[in-house]
Computed example of a mutant assay.
Amino acid sequence: MNSKVDEYFRSVPTWRDELQTLRRIVLQCGLTEELKWRVPCYTFGGKNVVILGTLKSCCTISFFKGVLLKDPRKVLDKPGENSRSARLIRFTSVDQIEAIEPILVAYIREAATLEKAGAKVELKNDAGPDYPEELTACLAENEPLRAAFENLTPGRQRGYILHFSAAKQSKTRVARIKKCEQRILDGKGLHDCVCGLSGKLPNCDGSHKQMRNS
């Protein structure tokens, strides 16, 4: 167990019992426990396998490469309509988790085996960029942000994904996501005008900056 994750569980305001149950199940599968993006993340050989998260209506366990899992029980869902790699399972009670514990163990071990084998998610060239892991994690812990991001047009989503993914370091990707949160919640694209002064709406033409400097 990781002491930083211990602190997370002491301070998490909702779904604590459910998350503790998921933690127990994941740890018995031999993964390494870390705290990434402010949530418990479990790795194998330094590679991210699953993360735990909370939404207003449920808690979740998310598989970073869940699309590669066989999923014979059909329990995996997409985090969002355009998610092509990550898959998650939503829970609202400890009983619900324990009812499928053997399935969870099998899926977690399969996901770890895929990482050990170096499995990659093959993306179609015309499918657009995939979510960076940091964005997947942020959307998993922030239901309003997830809903707002899914409501953006595909072009606006693509703009954000490319902007976040372009950063080389994880901490920079997280900082970019945090900086854009309010813009996303407002339904704005990365280059949309937010002041209403642009002559090229919805795009920004720098009018606000020009007015401020005049």
Score class of each variant (00 low, 15 high):
Ala127Glu: 09
Leu114Gln: 13
Leu22Asp: 01
Asn82Tyr: 10
Leu104Ile: 11
Arg10Ala: 13
Asp192Asn: 12
Cys58Arg: 13
Asp17Val: 04
Ser3Arg: 15
Ser165Lys: 06
Gly80Trp: 06
Arg24Val: 07
Arg212Cys: 09
Gly187Met: 14
Ser57Leu: 07
Lys65Asn: 15
Arg158Val: 04
Ala117Asn: 12
Lys65Pro: 03
Thr172Ala: 09
Glu7Tyr: 15
Cys195Pro: 04
Gln28Asn: 10
Arg73Asp: 14
Ser170Gln: 08
Ala111Trp: 07
Leu22Cys: 08
Leu76Arg: 03
Ser3Cys: 12
Gly53Leu: 01
Pro129Leu: 02
Leu162Arg: 11
Trp15Phe: 13
Arg176Thr: 00
Leu35Ser: 11
Ala175Ser: 06
Asp205His: 13
Lys4Asn: 15
Ser62Ile: 11
Arg10Ile: 12
Tyr107Arg: 03
Asp186Leu: 11
Ser3Met: 14
Gln96Phe: 12
Asp71His: 05
Cys195His: 15
Ile51Trp: 07
Pro40Ile: 01
Asp186Phe: 03
Arg158His: 08
Cys29Ser: 12
Val75Tyr: 09
Lys116Tyr: 14
Leu135Val: 05
Asn151Val: 00
Asn2Phe: 12
Lys36Phe: 05
Thr21Ala: 11
Gly199Glu: 13
Ser207Arg: 14
Gly206Thr: 07
Tyr160Gln: 08
Pro154Asn: 04
Lys47Val: 14
Ser214Gln: 05
Ile161Thr: 03
Gly199Lys: 12
Tyr8Gly: 05
Asp6Pro: 03
Gly53Glu: 02
Ala166Trp: 05
Thr113Val: 11
Arg109Pro: 05
Leu69Thr: 06
Asn48Ser: 07
Thr153Gln: 11
Ile103Glu: 15
Ser83Lys: 01
Lys200Gly: 00
Val75Ile: 14
Gln28Arg: 14
Ser214Gly: 07
Asn125Cys: 01
Cys58Glu: 08
Arg212His: 12
Glu134Arg: 01
Gly196Met: 01
Lys178Val: 01
Leu152Ser: 13
Gly199Phe: 06
Arg176Asn: 05
Lys116Trp: 15
Leu22Thr: 00
Asn142Ile: 00
Gly80Met: 10
Ile25Pro: 04
Ser214Phe: 04
Leu31Asp: 02
Phe9Pro: 01
Gly189Ala: 10
Ser83Val: 08
Tyr160Ser: 03
Cys58His: 14
Phe64Gln: 04
Lys171Gln: 10
Phe64Asn: 02
Tyr42Met: 07
Arg146Glu: 06
Glu7Met: 15
Val174Ile: 14
Ile177Glu: 02
Gly196Arg: 01
Ala140Leu: 03
Ala117Met: 12
Gly66Glu: 02
Asn142Tyr: 00
Lys56Tyr: 00
Lys116Met: 14
Arg90Val: 02
Arg73Gln: 13
Glu150Gly: 09
Gly155Cys: 01
Gln20Tyr: 13
Ser170Met: 06
Lys188Leu: 15
Glu181Ile: 10
Arg109Gly: 06
Ala147Asn: 11
Trp15Ile: 06
Lys171Ser: 10
Glu143Pro: 00
Asp77Phe: 09
Tyr131Gly: 02
Asp17Leu: 09
Val194Glu: 12
Arg87Ser: 02
Ser198Val: 09
Pro102Glu: 05
Asp192Val: 09
Lys209Asn: 12
Arg16Tyr: 03
Val94Glu: 07
Cys41Gly: 10
Glu115Leu: 15
Gly30Val: 03
Pro72Thr: 01
Pro79Ile: 08
Ile161Val: 15
